[in-house]
Amino acid sequence: MMDHSIKGKVVLVAGGAKNLGGLIARDLARQGAGAVAIHYNSAATEAAARETLVAVQTAGAEAALFQADLTGGAAVKGLFADVVTRFGRPDIAVNTVGKVLKKPIVETTEAEYDEMAAVNAKSAFLFIREAGRQLADNGKLVTLVTSLLGAFTPFYATYAGTKAAVEHFTRAAAKEFGARGISVNAVGPGPMDTPFFYPAEGQDAVAYHRTAAALSAFSKTGLTDIEDVVPFIRFLVSDGWWMTGQTVLINGGYTTK
């Protein structure tokens, strides 16, 4: 019988320095992961990554930091190679990397589109591709997308559009990797109470989002709290292994597909 527990497993969290990624790294360490590889993008997030490193080690797991810009294939390949060298093949890989842009289509520049496509779609594809090569048999792979995939709304064309590509990557990868027992899923949180959310939104928009979900009144912020997303990640990379090729929206009833 396949072992789907987290205990003793090697975990890679891309974008694992802070916010949701940092909490996922901490949580999986508390669940008994043997080693947690914490990826961060640049010097801007290095200090937060070091705080997460200490928290993971305090929880009892081995841990190490890995810096890379995941919009390039060589960097993604190098990240996985470095993790394999340090800890062995990862059993669990979670990619939380993403970038948001709220802007009308007619005002969006080609350079902005290219950056959004690189961060949200290309890096996700490269991560999934390398995970397919390097994950251990019966591994688990999760990519963060957005609940806007279930929305009918203006101004987020490049954000939702480039994340939408990940749905198709996920389905294809689930079929292709399934012969090795690897499950592949995408998770789309609603608007989250993190610094990632607020710069793109005005006060009126924030007020709307705080009341838009069916369960908003029962959230401490009205938004999706990262603490409410982590249990779903934990489930998908353990006992929820039978779910694969799916996009799961975790948003308290904010949008649905």
Rank of each mutant, 00 (worst) to 15 (best):
T211G: 08
V230S: 03
V230G: 01
A214S: 11
Y208I: 04
D228L: 03
D239M: 09
T244W: 06
T224H: 04
V206L: 15
T211N: 11
F218R: 09
T211F: 01
F235P: 05
W241C: 07
T224F: 04
Y208G: 00
A217H: 11
L236D: 00
I226S: 03
V237S: 03
L236V: 07
T224A: 11
D225S: 08
G240L: 08
F235N: 09
W241A: 15
G240A: 10
I226E: 07
I233H: 02
A213S: 11
S238D: 07
L236Q: 06
D228W: 05
F235M: 14
I226A: 07
T244Y: 07
G245T: 06
I233G: 01
L236H: 04
E227G: 14
A205G: 10
T224N: 06
V230T: 09
S219L: 09
D225E: 14
A213F: 02
A207Q: 13
A214M: 14
K220I: 09
A213L: 06
T244E: 04
A207G: 08
H209Y: 15
F235A: 13
W241V: 10
T211P: 00
I233R: 03
M243E: 05
T211K: 15
F232N: 03
F235C: 00
E227D: 15
E227P: 06
F235I: 02
F218C: 03
G245M: 12
Y208Q: 13
I226F: 02
A217D: 12
V237Y: 03
S216Y: 11
F232G: 02
L236G: 02
G245L: 13
I233N: 01
R210D: 00
A217S: 12
T224D: 05
L236I: 07
V230E: 04
I226W: 03
S219K: 12
V237D: 02
K220S: 14
T244F: 08
L223Q: 01
D204M: 10
P231F: 11
D225W: 10
R210Q: 15
W241H: 15
I226H: 03
R234P: 01
A212K: 07
F218Q: 11
I226K: 08
G245W: 06
E227T: 13
L215Y: 08
L223C: 03
I226D: 00
G222T: 04
W242G: 05
V229R: 01
R210Y: 01
D239R: 13
A212Y: 04
A205V: 15
A212C: 06
D239E: 13
T224G: 04
V229M: 05
V230K: 04
L215I: 00
G245E: 05
A217V: 01
A214Q: 13
W242Q: 12
G222R: 02
V206E: 07
K220P: 03
A217Y: 06
A214H: 10
F218P: 00
R210W: 01
E227I: 06
G240C: 09
T211S: 13
R234S: 13
S219M: 14
H209W: 14
K220T: 12
I226P: 00
H209C: 05
L223T: 02
R234C: 06
V230A: 09
M243V: 15
V237L: 12
Y208D: 09
V229E: 02
A212D: 01
S238Y: 03
A207M: 08
R210C: 05
G240S: 09
D225R: 10
I233L: 14
T224S: 14
V206N: 04
G222C: 07
W242C: 08
F232C: 04
S216R: 09
G240D: 07
L215D: 08
F218M: 12
D225Q: 10
S219Y: 11
